[in-house]
Amino acid sequence: MLNIRNFTILTEKICQNIRLLSAAVPQPSSTSNNPLASTEVSQTVKEDVLKHPDYFNVHNLFTVKDLFEARVHYGHREGSLDNKMLPYIYGSRLGYTIFDLDKTAEYLRHALNIAAHVAYRGGIILFFMRSPQNAHLVERYAKECGEFAHTRFWRGGIFTNAEKQFKAVTRLPDLCIFLNTLNTILTQHTAVRDSAKMGIATIGIVDSNCNPNLITYPVPGNDDTPIAIELYCKLFKEAILRGKAKRKEHLEL
């Protein structure tokens, strides 16, 4: 087990570099897609918000204990482990991989911060979840925070051929949150690839059998247990609502 942990430190660095090369990191651009590209909130305020390491105080949303109680640390069996997940694994117990929750917490806080920032800038956030057991839960939370959900069969081309799919020019989401990155037949969700193609930032809960390469902001953790999914949903909802509240506050200034 210690071998694995030593190995992880090495691989983590490598993986991060690889991810920078492969993942769709959204470029800070001033396209017409972004409604806040020109000044609604004054430029100085926006810069202050961006410079602050944790402007929306997302670090106090949860503790590592919360994650533990929501069973976020449970991975799949060792045999199904994806090697690219090694950096985030603490070890294995009774044949099941266990996530390092300290790392998970760090990645999750980063992801929450991103979600709050996107919400603050009026971005569209789309939640994904393909497990039928948790689909309704995710839809409910997406609705509650005024964002969008797609928990159904993914018809190809919704992102890549949006104009034909929606029969009109359509604004695509600015951030996709994958609460699991696999589809029902345990291959990677096509939307992960499509988001990367279209330069849409993605946050993904990646379990030990998933590939984090195409996810912009991966969060290692259990993506099956309803309690864990509910915890993620609650956290993202709260972060988004914080971002929106700030946006409202600053717009009225």
Binding site: N33, P35, G122, I124, L126, E139, A142, K143, G146, E147, F148, A149, H150, R152, R155, I158, Q165, F166, T170, R171, P173
Partner: peptide, 21 residues
């Protein structure tokens, strides 16, 4: 199905069949 900023009204808009779902 969307406002001036292009944000859809329906929370299931991206499924393509919001009313059905």
């Amino acid at each position: 199905e969307f406002d001036e900023t292009g944000r859809p009204y329906h929370f299931l808009f991206y499924t393509g069949r919001p009313n059905f779902y």
